[in-house]
Design a protein around this nucleic acid. Sequence first.
RNA 1: GUGAGCGUAGCUCAGCUGGUGGUAGCACCGGGUUGUGGCCUCGGCGGUCGUGGGUUCAAGUCCCAUCGCUCACC
Length: 377
Amino acid sequence: MESSPNKPSPFVIHTRSSQCAARCGEVQTLHGTFQTPIFMPVGTQATVKAVSPENLIELGAETILANTYHLFLRPGHELIRELGGLHRFMNWDRPILTDSGGFQIFSLRELATITEEGAGFKSHLDGTALFLSPEDAVAVQEALGSDIMMCLDTCIPYPADKDETLNATELTARWARRSRRAQRQTGQLLFGIVQGGMYPDLRTLAVEQLLEIGFDGYALGGLSVGEPHDLMLDITEHTVKKLPRDYPVYLMGVGTPEDLVESVYRGIDMFDCVMPTRNARNGMLFTSRGRIVIKNSQYNNDPRPPDESCACYTCRNYSRAYLRHLYMSREILAYQLNTIHNLYYYVGLMRSMRKAIVNDTFLQFRNNFYAMRDEKS
RNA sequence: GUGAGCGUAGCUCAGCUGGUGGUAGCACCGGGUUGUGGCCUCGGCGGUCGUGGGUUCAAGUCCCAUCGCUCACC
């Protein structure tokens, strides 16, 4: 595929794997660069739940997410602008990517109404009627001052018939064009979102429509919405092949450690997912040998750290027995220590993958990744 | 001491005039969780109905005794 028109790519690729579609590079933003492939912790409400910015820096996070819809509702983007922007507000001076609120149209769909103009919501907080157009979403993200803005999109549920998928995909494209037009010259990047559901030809169509507009990067939306796992990987692979090679490609909302490995293998550069943080708060820890559920009684008196080969703050200092005790006691520290560990694992997994790409040993890395798993995990 | 009320799962309790112990909540034990509501969800374990008698074809339910707890009054 040819390059996208209009704007130079913020993406510099250092190394391409000779073994697969994986590549290693960096994305330039207003708040510095980040290395890819990258995992971005989710911090919906201007905080990565349970951890501080200092924790995030120590565990190696380079970029985090925040959410347009949630911050628009509370505390309000104008307030954040007045207080110096999102970075200053939350004391984070590295890159921030803001999701547009498109996913909330999907996840809060019983409260949302989609029209050509945009999305009407009834606030999940107090029921207040509010409206978010593609132009509004850009304006809010400009007020927040995020480094990477996402276009408002419409995420398609699974299963969905082809007509419904086509309609949503084309609406997303029209919204994408309006988003690009609404953008002011702030230096913030704007990514388009490829929809198209589980139909390869519609994914291709979505890519073509976005490339006509031209964005700073391209995201794959509407995946991991209940479809079979293999289908997710197939659609990812198909879509990546249609996208220009010199722009960053972001797989939204994915996924498990296995998903990350398989998606990097297929050429994905950026990820976000609530899984490491949410599951941390629900007592599940990711380790190099698979996942453990720290609330299980078998860890009652287990003196080992969650992952004996992990160098995170949690594993360096605390036993499974203690973490189980904290979790069972509903202590706040449980959420913090579990989240630190899981994010360290995810960030470390990405670091390992970058290293493997640079050394051109990604296939060996991938084989070893699976070989280390315990049976059940 | 007198009067009243209450004893059912680890805890809090449903159980109507006797007819197989509750899909109850919490706790506990497992599973799930993919652009986040610290949530939610799906399974599972769990009871000689305080104890001893009696009435009855049949008692958690009715009667007597007894033990324990609570409240009120002395």
